[in-house]
């Protein structure tokens, strides 16, 4: 299925938000989900809900974290 992650289409087999996050962040030098936040179709999904929140074809996902800012 195709999921739009951060504005770009991605092919994914992830069943839920947690799997999608793992898939997407493979290759980033990170220890865990702390510091990340995810929105699904314009609504926040809390970390406690990542595993139980399913993703389906065409979903729009935002995966963000804090960066330097003013």
């Amino acid at each position: 299925m195709t999921i739009v992650i951060n504005g770009e289409p991605h092919e994914s087999q992830a069943a839920n938000v947690l799997e999608l996050w793992k898939e997407f962040t493979t290759g980033l030098e990170i220890e865990g989900p702390q510091g990340f936040a995810i929105a699904l179709n314009g609504a926040l999904v809390r970390k406690t809900q990542w595993q139980s929140t399913h993703v389906t074809q065409g979903d729009r996902i935002e995966i963000v974290r804090p960066m330097q800012g003013g």
Partner: peptide
């Protein structure tokens, strides 16, 4: 200190600002 919230980019290494 102020921070921004931005999409995670795969071609950019994670910020260790935090």
């Amino acid at each position: 200190v102020t921070m921004s919230i931005r999409r995670v980019s795969l071609d950019r290494r994670g910020s260790d600002t935090l």
